[in-house]
Structures are given as C-alpha cells and as structure tokens.
Design a protein around this nucleic acid. Sequence first.
DNA 1: CAACTGTATTGACATTTATCGATATAGCTG
DNA 2: CAGCTATATCGATAAATGTCAATACAGTTG
Lengths: 125, 125
Amino acid sequence: MQSNSNHELPIASGACCCTLQAGLRLPQAEADVLAARFKAIGHPIRLQIVDLLSRFGGEVCVCDVEAHFTLSQPTISHHLRVLRRAGLIEAEQRGLWVYYVTAPAALATLQDFLAALEGQPTPVT
Amino acid sequence: MQSNSNHELPIASGACCCTLQAGLRLPQAEADVLAARFKAIGHPIRLQIVDLLSRFGGEVCVCDVEAHFTLSQPTISHHLRVLRRAGLIEAEQRGLWVYYVTAPAALATLQDFLAALEGQPTPVT
DNA sequence: CAACTGTATTGACATTTATCGATATAGCTG
DNA sequence: CAGCTATATCGATAAATGTCAATACAGTTG
C-alpha cells in the first residue's frame, strides 16, 4: 500500500549503517545472571567438575573431585565455590564429607537461552 | 548372589570417601574448547551481543552494536574479537562496514554439552 | 590522490582471577 | 576431650581481563 513498506523492519530503509531499530531483548539483570553462570562453567576444570557431578550426582565428595585433577585442595575448593556461587552446583554435608550435586534448574536456564537463539541448527538429540 | 553386589557401581563398597571409580568423560582438548566458548559468552555485554546478532544476523554492523551500549568503540571491538576468536561469531566486510553473524554450529556445541548433562529437567520448549 | 569514515590495534592501567602454602573450622573417633 | 580428617578460608602473587585514549588501517568518495 504505502511507499514505506518496511516500517516494521529493524533496518531503516535509506541509510547504510547504524540504523538497527531494535533494543536489547534481555533485561540487564537477566543477562548478568546468565553471563555469570556461563562464566562459571567457562573454565576447563569447572566444566569437567560439572560434567562429573552430573554423571554421579550425590556420590561425589570433594576428595573425589580432587582425585581427578592435579590441582591443590584449596584450588579445587575455590572452583567449587565459584560454581556454587553461580548457582550451578549445591553442597550437602554428610558427616565429615561434603558431597556436591548439580543444580539442574540453573543449568537449564543456560540451555534455554541457547535454544532461544535464532538461526541455529537443531541440536543433535 | 555374591556379597559384593555393587562391583559395577562407581562407588566402592567398603570405603566412605574418595572412592569414585570413574575418570573424566571429556578429553581435555574438548573441554578446553567448550570452556573457551562458555567463557566468551560469559560476559553480560558479549552475551547481549550474541543475542542481538542471533536476532538480526547479517544486518548488524559494528556501529549498530556500539549503539546498544555505553562503551567505547575499542571496547566493543575487543568484545567482538573475543567472540570471534572463540568461534561464536564471524565477521563479513561489506564496503566500509563490518557485519557480524553468529556461528550456529559453535553455539550448538554448547547446547549439546548442556543437553548431555544428566539429571537435568527437560528444558522448556 | 586527498580527505573522510568505520573498524581494528596498541599501550596503559585498574580490576579480577587462578593458584598455592599456611591456617582455620567442623565433625568424627579413640 | 584430644587428636585426626575433610573441607574451607586467608594471604600472597602472577597472569588474565576490561576499559579507554590514541593511533593505525582499510575502504569510500570527492
């Protein structure tokens, strides 16, 4: 009908640059939480820890984690705290030992964010 | 039959700690790549950039990205480079402008890793 | 080709992070 | 309760990161 048919498109018609007419989709608070979780899992040791806990949840105490790496005990404890503070894992004390489990809901928020990104191929299932 | 019925379990029967009989599932090289990608997206600005590109892939030049944040142009360029070096986004020059798009395959590796974690609820679809 | 423009790089600096040794804490056990 | 053990915290230090101003580079345009 009207000559300006692209008034709904995110790109303005005439100009050639810096014309994207869209704001950010995520509230900053939400982006902060997601980024903090991605950042926590964004370390090789912590990624392996999460993978380990997801396989043997509830059966892995701190010394079990330690046995898988050549890092000192304080360093392992540090990585567990980073994951804990990001909400990705939780601790449960049983007697003298502390067992860790993953926090599935928090991990799911990451998966959901990635799934919501457009233009991706369907993940292998 | 036999008294030691849990010889297949990852937890040894007698002891109480440090008895997990399982190694790491991921080769370190793979964990390194995944962690680097998670780390790259683990920053609020970069997470928003990826989200933006996924929505308007191919239509977003650097100055469009800049317009969404209150950071200097070199800082935006830095974040774009971090994402590029992690393989999560790609650049395409058109004339004087550089347009960025997401790298769906790389993003899918992250989604696949999270999906492969056990003990998670089914993500909302 | 000279000026302009969009983007990348460099250099500097403050902050954060990863790591370890030393020490503290909490819970078990004799 | 005294000693032991598993885990956490503290303090220090080297390395990595985020940010910006200044500058360089590449492509366009007069």
